[in-house]
Design a protein around this nucleic acid. Sequence first.
DNA 1: GAGTGGTCTAGACCACTGT
DNA 2: CAGTGGTCTAGACCACTCC
Lengths: 270, 270
Amino acid sequence: MQPQATAGERAVKVRIADEIRMQIERGELAPGAPIPTIQDLTKAWNVSPRTARDAHQLLRQMGLVTGRRGSPLRVRTPRHLTIRSSDRHQIEKDLVLRPETERAQTGTSELEMQTPIDNFRFGCTAERIPAREPLADVLGVAPGTELLQRTFTKADRTTGALHEWSVSWIPVDLIKGNPDIIDKADQPWPGGTQHQLHTVGIEIVRIVDEVTGAMPTTVDQQLWDLEDGVPFLRVRRISIDDQDRVVEVSDAVFPADRTKLIFNTPLAKW
Amino acid sequence: MQPQATAGERAVKVRIADEIRMQIERGELAPGAPIPTIQDLTKAWNVSPRTARDAHQLLRQMGLVTGRRGSPLRVRTPRHLTIRSSDRHQIEKDLVLRPETERAQTGTSELEMQTPIDNFRFGCTAERIPAREPLADVLGVAPGTELLQRTFTKADRTTGALHEWSVSWIPVDLIKGNPDIIDKADQPWPGGTQHQLHTVGIEIVRIVDEVTGAMPTTVDQQLWDLEDGVPFLRVRRISIDDQDRVVEVSDAVFPADRTKLIFNTPLAKW
DNA sequence: GAGTGGTCTAGACCACTGT
DNA sequence: CAGTGGTCTAGACCACTCC
């Protein structure tokens, strides 16, 4: 009889999962290939179905396999990665000075579209909120300062699954010179945030991106149609103007299985 | 009797976990506070201990709680984040032209130290390998081209847990002008890769960082002493010289619970 | 020693897939 | 329809922590 894991040893479910993991890494189980079923594993390892299933679950959490009810688990095929490059910051800035017609057709803002627009439902809400810590600290304003908070969403029209989500905060004081920005805050901004800030005389000269990672909650997994084993990339974008003020802070979330972030750092020549 | 999840409803374990998750998010369960035990949950929700435990497991996978055997699970306290800024690229380049004494004491290479060096064991291995796809493609060399592959590790001397890990590839052809680089490849390079390349007349003018995320395997979790629910940040650094050649590619891995990546993008002024 | 979580059993029922 | 995985039960034993 196969014993439980004894002192110092790894659990049986871990050993089962590891053996399958190594088969995947060696290419013996190619992407798309079915992995051993629960029945297979109970016989091969002489364990209960529940333990075999636990091994399956470990493989899902590692992001190695995928599957739906009713069909066997299969080795996950890498998804196509959407690339988000920091070059977009400069591109967006260059567009600000172009005529509006050009801006509209080259949209590289939060509402950028890479697939036919009809497949997606865009959401855009705005409200005015008081700044709370620690956000107030990042923006360099006193807690309680009024902020324009805008959220953007892009969701699949048929499945309802989220594809993009971000929030942006701008101190209201900075943009009260152009009431349009606040009045139309819940509509897309052609030309993006940089253009809107340009209309009140703000020039952004530096953007700082802070990248961290975290696991989605069960609710996130539902909203984004995420499988197990797929982490989030979280990006906080801090926009700094020519007077060294933080004029906008934005938080965005990207599923790591379909996103690659690219940052370009030119170095000064000798 | 509490039923199984019926059609369209979420599983009981998910509902249990969600209720606790919301208590955490609302601050009703502060960091460090114990969450309801398995016993508590079996009584409160009228479920079997196994289902209560599954709810616990979900909370761990979301990175919300932590705990060791024998003590109750507690709300996770955010760890101190180690910051890795893209500014290091320019700083390292500036150091190349400084005298060696200065380079040694300001080390900002892969072997940078933020805590007393005695606590860590550094590893550095080197070998010459043929380039395989898809790496050869990134380096812009033919498959089979000889590469110098170097791996760096930094591990806790007492626990053995990994703290840093990275691999670097350089086409051997580029550096054969300085045999020292290859002969001493398994030793730390004072001044970093940029300095070594400088000795064979290579100037790096641009660095591209590609960031993705992925879940660690069970083996990774052991090696890095990672808890459940902590993803990896993976960074591929591509160094490009003044002739637009890719002269080095490096892959590094960072546990997301203790790392924040910062990328600075200056924008051209109007 | 009492209490905790981690693993495992040997089933059951259900939802879903694919034929 | 047979076969799959997902959920759940009602326990058992173990490792570990904390008192």
